[in-house]
Design a protein around this nucleic acid. Structure first.
Lengths: 141, 141
DNA sequence: GATCAATGTTTGACCCATCAATCATTCTAT
DNA sequence: ATAGAATGATTGATGGGTCAAACATTGATC
């Protein structure tokens, strides 16, 4: 009745790939991809409010709160109230967090190497572009 | 320090897209994408064991058990012990489940239409192929 | 200046996935 | 024939995400 359309195949693989990659990343790097992204954002920016983090990661604010709480418990991150606006809490990387990033970056590189094995540079660009377009479509749902 | 590589961009978008699509699908179809896939598998095959379902969906057996339990509670699915092998429980679609599939298919079509807006047939094929290759890489992690 | 809307964060309830452990059943090999 | 491995399903613990509701704080308006 239903031949396998490319669209369906794409959606299924998005889901599978994401699950596999997430667990693989956490498994080998010892930190979830999202938390690593948070650390990287904090590495780039000196001190940021959570809403900014939430927007640059594209995930729910509740998730950000909980991730930061865990990262703070591990002393990777530290938070303080913004003196100019008591609603926002400013987040910044600790020394300890900064030290650990390097290792995570390496684990991620290895994962990427495996994942994109057989893809030349042009293909990677094309794939990135297609997913970007798809995401723009998804944003207007 | 870190220019945005296509690989990183791809991984981030995989995650985002998946989250957005999952919630969009559940939101408009009223059923999760995974449960819909289960129903479709059952539609195609007369009666299947859970392990077969698990393998064709590519997810954990525990998840399959729980989804089927919910689908059974909604009377979309019914289960019985396999007479030939009491370890396996055979699953099949109920009338009610069969009736609902059509609506889900339509919701999915609409979602696909939006999601792939601006993609021609050849691009969709190429995207499907790339993700398939990537998934093969991911399987050997 | 009091009120009411907007903003930033947090919490609770839920869904979906994983892994590890358990249990019953069947298979196998001695 | 029975002990032990393999298989199928389930359950519990955990992690990551969503949404909705709460809360404090700030801004805007009359």
């Amino acid at each position: 009745m239903c031949p396998v359309t490319p669209e369906t195949s794409i959606l299924e693989r998005l889901q599978l790939l994401n699950n596999r990659i997430s667990t693989a990343f956490s498994g080998c790097a010892g930190i979830s991809a999202t938390r690593f992204r948070l650390l990287q954002e904090l590495f780039a920016a000196e001190e940021v409010g959570q809403t900014a983090l939430q927007k640059s990661l594209g995930i729910d604010g509740a998730a950000v709160t909980r991730h930061l709480k865990q990262l703070e418990a591990k002393d990777f991150v530290s938070r303080r109230n913004c003196p100019d606006d008591n609603r926002v809490t400013l987040v910044h990387l600790t020394e300890r967090g900064r030290e650990h990033i390097e290792g995570f970056v390496q684990e991620k590189s290895r994962l990427i190497e495996d994942l994109f094995h057989g893809f030349d540079a042009e293909e990677r660009e094309r794939l990135a572009n297609m997913l970007e377009r798809m995401q723009r479509n998804a944003d207007t749902l």
